[in-house]
Each structure stands twice: as structure tokens, then as C-alpha cells.
Amino acid sequence: MKANIDNAVAEIRTVLEQVHALVPNATTSMAGYPMLFSRTQACSTLVSASQRVILNDVAVYFEGKQRELALSMSASHVR
């Protein structure tokens, strides 16, 4: 799962680089990736507690990777 996220972030970087090449003075903002489920309440009968933990952990990982990407590209007006 993390490898898929890492690949997606690499693709996002490519797109952001293309945008920056076309409009170098534009500022690009990325929205964070929220946790999908409450950590304290059972909010779904379709997703078990252990599945909620896994999905939330993936969301936190993805958000962190996006944040790292934005920070690494801040000179290119990415935030």
C-alpha cells in the first residue's frame, strides 16, 4: 500500500513540475489527506475496527508524504 502511495506522490511531483514549468509564478496549493474514520467511535458496520485503523494509518502516511513533497517544492511555489 505504501509503495502505491509513494508512486502516486512521485506522479504528483511530475505534474507539479509541469505546472511550474508552464506558469512559474503561480502558487499551487495541495489539500491534506484527512483520516477517514473516527479513532474513538465505531462509525461504520461495514468496516471493522482493525480495518479503520489501517485505513487511517494509510491516510496519515499519504498526508505526510504530500506535506514532504510540498516542503521540498516550496521554491517552486508549492504549498
Results as ranks from 00 to 15, higher is better:
Met30Glu: 07
Cys43Lys: 01
Ala26Met: 00
Ser48His: 01
Ala49Asn: 05
Asn7Pro: 00
Ala3Trp: 08
Met35Asn: 03
Glu11Pro: 01
Ala59Trp: 09
Arg13Ile: 03
Met30Trp: 04
Asp57Asn: 07
Asn4Phe: 11
Asp6Asn: 02
Lys2Asp: 12
Leu16Ala: 07
Arg67Tyr: 11
Thr14Ala: 08
Glu68Pro: 04
Leu16Pro: 08
Pro24Tyr: 03
Arg39Leu: 11
Val15Ser: 14
Leu69Asp: 00
Leu16Cys: 14
Pro24His: 07
Ala70Glu: 00
Asp6Ile: 13
Asn25Tyr: 07
Ser44Arg: 13
Glu11Leu: 07
Thr27Cys: 12
Gln66Cys: 15
Ala21Ile: 01
Met35Lys: 09
Ile5Glu: 05
Ala49Lys: 11
Thr14Asn: 10
Glu63Tyr: 02
Thr14Cys: 00
His20Cys: 01
Gly32Ala: 15
Leu71Arg: 07
Ser72Asn: 05
Leu55Trp: 04
Gln41Met: 14
Pro24Gly: 06
Asp6Arg: 05
Val53Leu: 13
Pro34Leu: 10
Tyr33Met: 12
Phe62Tyr: 14
Val23Tyr: 05
Arg79Lys: 11
Thr28Cys: 10
Asn7Lys: 11
Arg67Val: 13
Val53His: 09
Ser76Leu: 15
Gln51Pro: 03
Thr27Ile: 12
Met30Asn: 11
Leu55Asn: 07
Ile54His: 04
Thr14Phe: 07
Gln66His: 05
Val78Lys: 08
Met30Ser: 15
Ala26Pro: 14
Leu16Met: 08
Ile12Glu: 11
Thr27Ser: 12
Ile54Gln: 13
Gln41Gly: 07
Ala70Pro: 00
Ala31Tyr: 13
Thr40Val: 12
Met1Trp: 07
Val60Gln: 14
Asn7Gln: 13
Ser74Tyr: 10
Val60Met: 00
Gln51Ile: 02
Ala3Cys: 15
Ala42Trp: 03
Ala21Leu: 04
Ser74Gln: 15
His77Ala: 12
Arg13Asp: 10
Ala49Gln: 03
Pro24Arg: 00
Ile12Tyr: 09
Ser72Leu: 13
Cys43Met: 03
Gln51Arg: 08
Leu69Ile: 00
